[in-house]
Structure formats: C-alpha cells, structure tokens
Simulated assay, not measured.
Amino acid sequence: MKLNKKLPAFTIMEVTISMLVAGIAIAIAFTAFRIVSGSYSGFTKKQEKVAALTTLDKVLKQDFLKADSIVRTEDGLVLKVKEGLITYQFDDQYLVRDQLSLRQDTFKMPVHELVLSFEKRVSEAGDRVDQLSFKTEADGDLIPLQYQKIYSAKDLFQ
C-alpha cells in the first residue's frame, strides 16, 4: 500500500511569507496609532491651557464688573461684592481665586509683570485698585491681560 497521497497544506515558505506580511501590517498600524495618539494628546493639552486661560479671563472680567470696590493686598486683591469677598492671590507659577470662602480655583498659569494701579498710579497694599494688568504664558508666548474697574461716584465715596 502506497501512501503517496498529497495532503492539502501550506508550505513553510508560504507560512513565513504570510507572517512577514502580517508583521509589516501590524507595524504600520501601530506606528499610525502612535502618531495619531500623540497628536491627539498634544491637542488635548493645548486645549486645556486655552480653556484655563479663557476661564480665567472670563472670571476676572465678571468679578471686576460685579465688584463694589477692589483693594490691593500684599500678594493680590480683595474684591468686595454684594455676596461677600472674592480674593485673588498672584504667584510666579499660579493664580488662586477664593470665592466667598466657599470655593478655591487654582489656575496653573504663571503671572509676570503684575501691575495694580488706581488712576494710573501704582497701588500699595491697602489701596484701592481700578486697573489690573499682567502677562501670562501659553505655549511659550506671553499673553497680556488687562482689566479695568470704572467706579461710580457712590462707590468712591463709601
């Protein structure tokens, strides 16, 4: 009895070539995934910084508009609003906002060239403030921010 029947199967060469092609396809897919993932991660970090800057700008504008008076402290500002006090503390690496002693917001943004003034004269601790200006960084660029409070005569005489 002869057993010379051929069985349907793949040769070693065919299996090796198919594994090589599969390996190349996996390497290309992994590289593309890393590129897209890195790009998305960078975009997300940049958007978080822009969102923090936008939020800080919005909150400062709103607080300056609502404030009855703004007074400089040793390391920041105290804004008197109808509901209570809002304090800002400025540091080289961050800015802290304490809203009515209920909630603190920390903005991890450096503060450079901080100027607090009243009627174009630099304010000292305890003095009234009508203008705040400083620069902060976003992606290595310095962004100037400026806020101004226009007091009513009633507010000035209180």
Rank of each mutant, 00 (worst) to 15 (best):
D63F: 06
L53W: 08
V96E: 05
V59F: 06
I35Y: 13
F30T: 14
K82Y: 15
I86A: 00
E83G: 10
Y94V: 10
D92W: 08
G76F: 00
K61N: 15
D91T: 00
A32Q: 13
I26H: 05
V50L: 14
R97S: 02
S39C: 03
Q99T: 15
K45F: 10
L100A: 08
G42K: 14
Y88H: 05
Q99H: 15
L100W: 01
T73L: 03
R72K: 10
R97T: 04
V81P: 08
D57R: 10
A27H: 09
G42R: 14
V78I: 09
K61E: 14
A32D: 14
K66N: 09
L56M: 09
S37F: 12
D91A: 11
S41C: 10
G76L: 04
F30A: 13
R97G: 01
L65A: 03
R103I: 09
Q89G: 10
L53Y: 03
I28N: 13
I70Y: 01
V81S: 00
T54R: 13
D57V: 06
Y94R: 14
V78K: 02
I26N: 11
L95K: 04
E83Q: 10
I86D: 00
D91V: 07
L77M: 07
A67C: 08
Y94T: 10
L77E: 00
A51L: 15
G76N: 04
E83S: 10
Q93E: 11
I26C: 15
I86C: 02
Q99P: 10
Y88M: 03
K49L: 12
D63E: 02
L53H: 06
V36K: 06
Q93H: 14
V50G: 08
A52Y: 08
Q62N: 02
I28C: 12
D92F: 10
Q62W: 09
V50T: 12
K46F: 13
Q99F: 15
D98A: 03
K80R: 09
S39Y: 13
